[in-house]
């Protein structure tokens, strides 16, 4: 292994350790939050056997211990030899976050404008974010939206929820 390889693997190990520190702290926080929540689980003290709290609290306890070990190892710059994390903050913000916001917006659009409008808009924006351009960009969204509509609501007979504001399919059916 030459010097450049060594420094590159060293950089990767340090990056993984940093990510492990953050992951460990996140796990620790989640375990703490769930443990506090578990104290609200009602317990009948006269019940034989284990209470409804035991299992959730045992899981929280174990998660907290392992999260703390992960964070501690990360803080010391140690990680498992084959463990290479790939998180990149810039990519997350520029590419993954917009898409995840879009997926949540889809739920909201579905509620307000029904399936067709929501899917049409989501696939258009999703295609744009993925870099689809030209004729494919124009055609992909309407084709896929109608295809899925036919598959799920037509062929399978899934219940289509009424839109709260305006549903284009209801309008088209009434024409």
């Amino acid at each position: 292994m030459n010097t450049s390889d060594l420094s590159s693997s060293d950089r990767q190990a340090r990056k993984t350790a940093r990510h492990d520190l953050a992951t460990g702290l996140a796990i620790l926080a989640l375990a703490g939050f769930l443990f506090i929540e578990s104290l609200d689980i009602p317990v009948d003290l006269e019940d034989a056997g284990l209470s409804a709290r035991f299992f959730p609290q045992a899981i929280c306890g174990l998660m907290a211990v392992l999260g703390a070990i992960l964070a501690f190892n990360g803080a010391r710059g140690q990680s498992a030899p084959d463990d290479k994390t790939t998180f990149d903050g810039k990519i997350f913000i520029s590419k993954v976050l917009p898409l995840s916001v879009l997926s949540f917006a889809y739920v909201w659009l579905f509620q307000l404008f029904g399936y067709t409008t929501a899917t049409l808009i989501t696939v258009y924006i999703g295609s744009y974010l993925f870099g689809v351009r030209g004729k494919a960009f124009l055609l992909l969204s309407p084709i896929m939206s109608l295809l899925f509509y036919y598959l799920f609501f037509g062929l399978m007979g899934v219940f289509e929820p009424p839109a709260e504001i305006f549903d284009v399919m209801v309008y088209l059916k009434n024409l």
Partner: peptide, 30 residues
């Protein structure tokens, strides 16, 4: 592949809705 994944995102959301006809489930899937 860039043409496949936007459609998969949409079909995944509709699929999540299909199970219990619940938009709450779609939000959970996201």
């Amino acid at each position: 592949p860039i043409m496949i994944y936007p459609s998969i995102l949409a079909v995944a959301c509709v699929s999540a809705y299909t199970a219990r006809s619940s938009l709450f489930d779609v939000g959970l899937a996201c």
